[in-house]
Design a binder for these strands. Structure first.
Length: 373
RNA sequence: GGUAGGAUGGCCGAGUGGUCAAAGGCAACAGACUGUAAAUCUGUCGGCGAGAGCCUACGCUGGUUCAAAUCCAGCUCCUACCA
């Protein structure tokens, strides 16, 4: 029911192309996965996601547990049916909320006590609870409940969190029973190379069909992120998918792929899209800027998305300044298309044996500096 | 014509003698956003200056006072009610 097939590998970099077989379809990797925390990719409908080329999307354990509740989703026939997305879904375990809701939670070896961000009520989530919820949601890929550590942190704290994450991973696997759902372990260890290597080895001993790399893109420099990937990826099993959690930035995707990452997810395309930020092949733009008021060209002339085929920067800027919801939709659409297709193009390049050139071409064009108006 | 109330920074609107270049909101301009507490958040927002600071400002004109957006007089305009 779940299998990873490595189909091509870049002889120069660590880039890999593969296929992930899931109950709801085959995913071609490397892949960018749009984030749909609350059973919706914000501002997008499922048919629109299909048109973009999205192969798999995310849902979130913590958020769906809080609202509407796992039982309701289960009663609805599972998350796929509930939200009318009939392709693969990956659910995050709530581990990231251990990080992002740091003001509202208390961690013990047993689990995490959360105060609801909605009404302040107390909830206790153990690895077993996360598994129960994810099994009710019925995602194709569930993630182990981990502790995503804040950055920066000490070597001691990172180790404690890593130990907890490993012990929770074991409990997750023991508790997990649904056969039509794969369970991925998550590597922690912050910016400590030895801990990262130790963590993947010990997770491998437990045995998972895929591995997430957590605790990155939490504020550290790109150099730190790449340094960890450089030492960690060669230690990861070749025949299992590698998922760099929460990443994100186009440059990070290109570099992640070069280091052997197969899967990415990030809120950046949708969140920034709602706020006027768009990604292009030549860098980022903020469409709210006055300079676009009379710019009657598409966001990215080389982009084939619905937004770029039909609308101008001036029109979209107008929608933003007028507070129109379509602005958020059109830019989310474009940004998702950009990242999904960046990975599709990367895959093609890997298969055709030209990933190093593809990578060079990307950076020659993509400008991180101030935008040109 | 009479009576009452009111005129504040692009707009709305606090402020009734000094701590006022003037709260707050909106608009505008810019920035941030990486397993989504985000259609959010932050900053700037009279002029000059790196800065201390200086200048110009609360309808207009004049006055009182060490000191006026705030008090007084006249004027202009607006609003409500009465004729």
């Amino acid at each position: 029911m779940f299998e990873y097939r490595l189909t091509a590998q870049c002889p120069e970099t660590g880039a890999r192309a593969g296929e992930l077989i899931t109950p709801h379809g085959v995913i071609e990797t490397p892949v960018f996965m749009p984030v749909g925390t609350q059973a919706t990719v914000k501002a997008m409908t499922p048919p629109e996601l299909e048109e973009i080329g999205a192969q798999i999307i995310l849902g979130n354990t913590y958020h769906l547990y809080m609202r509407p509740g796992a039982d309701i989703v289960e009663e609805a026939g599972g998350l796929h049916k509930f939200m009318q997305w009939h392709h693969p879904i990956l659910t995050d375990s709530g581990g990231f909320q251990v990080f992002s809701l740091s003001e509202l939670r208390k961690i013990t070896d047993e689990g995490v006590e959360f105060r609801s961000h909605l009404d302040g009520s107390k909830h206790f989530m153990r690895p077993e609870d996360s598994m129960d919820i994810q099994q009710k949601l019925g995602s194709d890929i569930a993630m182990a409940f981990d502790e995503c550590v804040v950055w920066p942190t000490t070597e001691e704290y990172s180790r404690a969190a890593m130990e907890r994450t490993i012990s929770w991973a074991k409990r997750c696997k023991e508790h997990h029973s649904r056969e039509d759902q794969a369970l991925f372990g998550i590597v922690q260890g912050s910016m400590f190379e030895a801990q990262r290597i130790e963590c993947i080895k010990r997770l491998e001993d437990i045995g998972f069909p895929g591995y997430g790399i957590g605790g990155l893109s939490v504020g550290e420099s790109h150099e730190d992120m790449y340094r960890i990937l450089d030492v960690l990826c060669p230690e990861m099993p070749v025949n299992k998918p590698r998922y760099l959690m929460g990443v994100g930035h186009p440059a990070n995707l290109i570099e992640g792929v070069a280091r052997g990452i197969d899967m990415f997810d990030c809120v950046l395309p949708t969140r920034n899209g709602r706020n006027g930020g768009v990604l292009t092949s030549f860098g980022k733009l903020n469409l709210k800027n006055r300079g676009f008021a009379r710019d009657f060209t598409p966001i990215d002339p080389s982009c084939g998305c619905y937004t770029c085929r039909n609308f101008t920067r001036a029109y979209i800027r107008h929608l933003y300044t007028a507070g129109e919801i379509l602005a958020a939709r059109l830019c989310s659409w474009h940004n998702l298309y950009f990242l999904v297709n960046l990975m599709r193009d990367a895959r093609k390049a890997i298969i055709e044996g030209r990933y190093p050139q593809f990578r060079r071409d990307f950076f020659a064009k993509f400008n991180e500096g101030p935008m040109q108006l």
